[in-house]
Nucleic acid binder design. Sequence first.
DNA 1: ACCGTCAACTTACCTAGATAACTACAGAAT
DNA 2: ATTCTGTAGTTATCTAGGTAAGTTGACGGT
Lengths: 270, 270
Amino acid sequence: MQAGSSGGGSRGPQALGSGDGGRVRDSKTKHRTYEPAYVHIVRIVSARIAAGEYRPGDQLPSESGFCAEFDVSPMTLRRAVNILVDRGLVTTAQGRGTFVRGLYLGEASFTLQQLTDRWRDASTEVRLLTASIVPAREDVAVMLGLGPGDSAVFLRRLFLNDGHPFMCHSEFVVYDPRRPLVESQLQITSLDGVLKSAGGEGFARARLSIRAVNLDDETAGYLERPAGTAVFCLEHTFEDFDGAPVSWGQFYFLSDEFQLVTTLGADWPE
Amino acid sequence: MQAGSSGGGSRGPQALGSGDGGRVRDSKTKHRTYEPAYVHIVRIVSARIAAGEYRPGDQLPSESGFCAEFDVSPMTLRRAVNILVDRGLVTTAQGRGTFVRGLYLGEASFTLQQLTDRWRDASTEVRLLTASIVPAREDVAVMLGLGPGDSAVFLRRLFLNDGHPFMCHSEFVVYDPRRPLVESQLQITSLDGVLKSAGGEGFARARLSIRAVNLDDETAGYLERPAGTAVFCLEHTFEDFDGAPVSWGQFYFLSDEFQLVTTLGADWPE
DNA sequence: ACCGTCAACTTACCTAGATAACTACAGAAT
DNA sequence: ATTCTGTAGTTATCTAGGTAAGTTGACGGT
């Protein structure tokens, strides 16, 4: 096969520079599509798995075998294998070998990236519906670690696309005059800004959960859907570096506008 | 910025023992808690980020600086940095430095692992409600790439915990007498089995999506909830190595029994 | 038949060092 | 003032090995 350095044989003292040895990486056109060897190997092996050349359960060639095939050093190959491992495509068992894994639904992972991808370039408008200092309700006090009588800042935002609302955000922030947090939050005018602002500077950790809920009357009004419509509810809690909660809130977004999507298997869109 | 040796130089001996002959790896007690140096470094740097010692936006010490501090070779340090990068804790910019990243909601990732964790050991019962060969409906034919008049195998399963149903699964499988797929599927009696079976051997790829939907009357009956209740709908399509769809179906599961949860930031449970 | 030892193979982890490419900045040339 | 150029500092990648440790199976002793 020699998928790696097709040229063969002569390996110079050092691969990268010398213009004579025709290696994979020479395909760089000055500074455009340079691809590191380990990435190349990952792609090749992934493609073989995707094509069924290596089937689930099969044992891959040994590391030294791959080293010979691709004509790279063990370290480089090892790096490629590590990537395959934590993409979940293969398993390595010390002393036995490397094996192709089957798909396992339980390992699917979904990201919120799609949420911003969906609306990043679009004509998305962020409308600040409410911004006020309120006495903390029972649940708010619990989530933010406040005492009775303490206050919190309440924010509510509506996100629209072409005039149609698709997401609603409610948030309670600990009120701390020393922290100019709230003011900066008020400036936010983009979806991206909202998502980034939360974790901007002063936060160390976030805890997130997604549920499927029926729209309550109020939120239904904002989103212009009938009450009871099933929507996603993304709940978030942010903590500062001392572990104290700083912010708690929920995003409600319409499922017919946005779904969590992912793929499993060896054809990662890379 | 230079979060590096901010605290006034003396980072202290805490780092990696160093001393003279005392290296990280000496901490292994024969064969117990041996921890590779790069893992150790990842943990130390993560902890510093979590503690706010390195803040978002700060520039980390240079690689050679870290090499000196931890007394490891550039290669080892580089491996640690790579891990931090693809955990999303830091960014590296060639020629500029390594920087601590802030949190970004869009990068949160949720896995279905929790689904099996939640019910793996529990007294979970899988009840096969339906298993029949049916002419493919319009939508089924489209999803499975069947012609008019073709047949599909229809399966419906109900998952119960302590007698209470929490999930319902409907699936259409391409009917191929040569493939003993269906029979093996009929044997499945555990949640884990269902999740694994799908991707067991003959599948190359899976496409998954999650929506929030209102329960229809029939499914509501199975799940013993009022129609209209908001639930998660996990839709799946499996393809074989030729890219032909083989199976299509949906899991409906109750959101009050299961949520997608994750955390963001530098306190990875590890 | 059973069990322990050992060698071969494989993966896991690491070191030392070199080269390439990128960025920023200062200083020279225009 | 502007542009070019060199230099220092940074990360990115790779080579060429070596050591440690788990797995397997054959071999020999009991």
